Amino acid sequence: MKNLKIYLGCLAVAASLFTGCIPQKEYVLLQDKSTEKKYENPYNPLDNITDKYFLQPNDYLFINVSTPDPKISEFFNQNASNSGNMQRNQNFFYYQIDDSMNIDFPYVGLINLDGCNVKMGKAKVQDALKPFLKEYNLTFRLASNTFTALGEFRNQGVQTMQREQITIFEAVAQAGGITPFGKQRKLQLVRQMPEGPVTYEIDLTDKNIINSEYYYIYPNDMLYVRPMKAKQFGIGESFSIGIITTLLALYLTLQTVIN
C-alpha cells in the first residue's frame, strides 16, 4: 500500500509537469499540419504582392511634378515654390485624400481617386496633367504607411511601415512579438476594403500562411491577438500554474513517503 502511494505521488508530479505547460502546438510557428487528421488548408493562394492596397480617405500622398523647366515645375508644385530648401519643407508635397476621395492638385483642381490603388492613382494624376504638360516626371507614393497592433503584443499601438507591404511575421516582430499568453492560432486581421472593413482569422502556427493571401499586410491593417484563459487568473509570464501544481504534488509525495 505504501509503495502504491509513492507511485501515485510520483505520477502526480509527472502529470503536473505536462499539464502545467502550454502545449507546443499553441506557440510553435510554421508547423506542417498536413499530417493532422481532417486538416484542410484554409487559405487561398497568393496571386500578387503589390498593388493590393486601395487608397482611402485621410491617406496622405507624396506627389511631385518635375519638368526640364524649373519654373514650370514650381507652377505645379505651388506649395513648395516659396522655399529654397526642398528637403526641409518636403511636407508641402503631401496631399490628403478627403472624404469624397479627392485631392486638390495645384492648377489642375480636384482629382478623384475613388477605387484606386497606388498605381491607378498615379495614372489618374498623369491623365489630369496631359492637357498641360508633355515632358515631365511624376513621383506618386503613399506617405501614411502604418498598421495597428493590439492585444497580446509586447509593443502595442500604431506601427510605422518601411514599405507599402510587409509580411505578417515582420509586423509581429516589429510589434515586439506575441506574449506567451497570446493566441497565435487565432490572430485577427482587420483590413479596410473599398466595401468596408473585413476581418480574417489567421493561424500563425500553420506554415501554409506563407503562400497565402494573408502573408502580407498593408497600410491601415489592424492585428489583434486575444489572450488565453490562463491570463484571467492574473498569472504573469514568469509564473506558471505548473509551478503551483508541481509544488503541491511534491508536497503530497513527501508526505506519503514520511507517513
Score class of each variant (00 low, 15 high):
Leu4Asn: 05
Leu4Lys: 09
Leu4Arg: 09
Leu11Trp: 01
Ala12Cys: 14
Val13Arg: 00
Ala15Ser: 13
Lys25Gln: 15
Leu29Met: 12
Leu30Met: 11
Thr35Met: 10
Thr35Gln: 14
Tyr39Cys: 07
Glu40Leu: 11
Glu40Phe: 05
Asn41Trp: 03
Pro42Ser: 11
Tyr43Glu: 09
Asn44Glu: 14
Leu46Trp: 01
Ile49Thr: 14
Lys52Val: 08
Tyr53Met: 10
Phe54Ile: 14
Phe54Ala: 08
Asn58Ile: 00
Asp59Arg: 08
Asp59Lys: 05
Tyr60Asn: 14
Phe62Ala: 14
Asn64Val: 04
Asn64Lys: 15
Val65Thr: 09
Ser66Glu: 12
Ser73Ala: 13
Glu74Val: 01
Gln78Val: 04
Asn79Ile: 01
Gly84Arg: 08
Gly84Pro: 07
Asn85Gly: 07
Arg88Asn: 09
Phe93Met: 06
Tyr95Ile: 04
Ile97Phe: 05
Asp98Pro: 09
Asn102Ala: 05
Asp104Val: 04
Phe105Ser: 11
Asn112Gly: 10
Leu113Trp: 03
Leu113Pro: 06
Gly115Gln: 12
Cys116Tyr: 02
Asn117Trp: 04
Lys119Arg: 13
Lys122Ile: 00
Lys122Asp: 09
Ala123Lys: 12
Lys124His: 05
Lys124Gln: 12
Val125Glu: 04
Leu129Ser: 07
Leu129Asn: 09
Lys130Cys: 00
Lys134Pro: 00
Phe140Tyr: 15
Thr146Glu: 11
Phe147Lys: 06
Phe153Ser: 12
Phe153Pro: 11
Asn155Ile: 07
Asn155Glu: 15
Gly157Thr: 06
Val158Ser: 13
Thr160Arg: 12
Gln162Ser: 15
Ile168Lys: 07
Glu170Lys: 11
Val172Met: 12
Gly177Thr: 03
Thr179Ile: 09
Thr179Asn: 05
Leu189Asp: 07
Val190Trp: 00
Gln192Leu: 14
Met193Trp: 01
Pro197Ile: 01
Pro197His: 02
Val198Ser: 10
Thr199Met: 12
Leu204Arg: 03
Leu204Phe: 02
Leu204Tyr: 02
Thr205Ser: 08
Asp206Ser: 05
Asn208Gln: 11
Asn211Leu: 04
Asn211Tyr: 04
Ile217Trp: 03
Pro219Phe: 01
Asn220Gln: 13
Met222Ala: 13
Pro227Gly: 04
Met228Glu: 11
Ala230Phe: 02
Ala230Gln: 10
Lys231Thr: 03
Phe233Asn: 08
Ile235Thr: 03
Gly236Ala: 04
Gly236Phe: 01
Ser238Asn: 15
Ile241Val: 13
Gly242Ala: 07
Thr245Pro: 01
Thr245Gly: 00
Leu250Arg: 02
Tyr251Arg: 10
Ile258Lys: 14
